[in-house]
Simulated assay, not measured.
Amino acid sequence: MKLIPVIDLMQGQVVRAVRGNRQAYRPIESQLCPGSAPVAMAQALCEHCATRQLYVADLDALLGRPAQVAALRSLLQAIPGLELWLDAGFASRADADALQREVDADPWVPVFGSESLASRDELQRCFAGRPDAGVLSLDRRDGQKMDLAGCWEAPALWPERVIVMTLERVGAGTGPDLQTLAEVRSKSPSTFMVGAGGIRNAADLEAARIAGAGAWLVASALHDGGLPRQRD
């Protein structure tokens, strides 16, 4: 099971995500690194997880404010070879391409969230002819799919990698939502499934692996010491 560490950026600092209530997030406090500076926290997380993959949620952009271009550029410049997955509330492939040009650094992987995509047509444009050109996040909160574009019911349009994001379990310490993961996986068994939300410890990770997840997005369990340092 691969761990993909997560940082949530708000106004230039890393914050602690809890249950998807973005307006209430506060600066992170972590056992891995003092302070909430993005570069230092990203370096600590990647080292702890023995990875060069990092998921970044730009909460400013997700809340309708300008993307944090300077912070994103700093991350890409500070960590050589970083594969940065970025969710910045993209409504379309054109939005992601425009931000890529603005950041003007090493390429990163756009995450297209079902809560943000404008339409089924935009979903098709995101990955048409290039299923490895990004990641789709299937988002839900409190049992409700966040999906005006109908992404959940269009597995033929999904890319090679799909995140199953259960927002009410993010930072909540309630365990992973393996039932939803299994339901999504049944629609497209060959898709690489990435879970998000709820992981507390190594036992949760093993249960997620058995349920069919190839990787899991993790933050709180790393900051709180629930997951040991990974080895290369």
Rank of each mutant, 00 (worst) to 15 (best):
G129F: 14
R130K: 15
C126I: 05
G197Y: 10
N201I: 02
G171L: 07
G150M: 10
A133V: 02
V184C: 10
G195H: 09
L148H: 14
V164Q: 04
R200H: 06
G195N: 09
P155G: 01
P110F: 14
D147F: 13
V194H: 12
L157R: 04
E183N: 10
R120V: 02
A154P: 00
S188L: 10
I210Y: 14
G171V: 04
R185P: 00
C126S: 07
I163R: 01
L205D: 03
T174F: 12
I210C: 11
E115P: 00
V111R: 02
S186L: 12
Q179M: 09
E183I: 02
G175Y: 13
G171Y: 05
L123C: 08
F112Y: 13
V135T: 08
K187A: 07
V111S: 06
G134Y: 14
L181A: 07
R130F: 11
D139G: 03
A202E: 15
D132S: 15
P155K: 03
L167F: 04
R200Y: 07
G212C: 06
S137D: 13
P176N: 08
A133R: 15
P189T: 05
T174S: 13
E160S: 10
F112D: 06
A172W: 09
L178Y: 03
V194P: 01
R120A: 15
R209P: 00
L138T: 03
L181Y: 04
W108Q: 03
E168K: 02
E160T: 06
F112V: 01
A172G: 04
A133L: 07
E122F: 12
A182P: 00
A149T: 03
A156P: 00
T174C: 12
D106H: 14
S186E: 10
P110M: 12
V184A: 11
I163G: 02
G173Y: 08
A211H: 13
A213Q: 10
V111I: 13
V184P: 01
F127M: 08
L123H: 09
D204V: 04
V162F: 13
D147L: 10
D204P: 00
Q144D: 12
I210P: 00
E183A: 14
D147M: 09
T166S: 11
V109S: 11
R185M: 06
A208T: 01
A156T: 04
G134Q: 14
Q124F: 07
V109I: 15
S114L: 12
E122T: 05
G212N: 09
L178P: 00
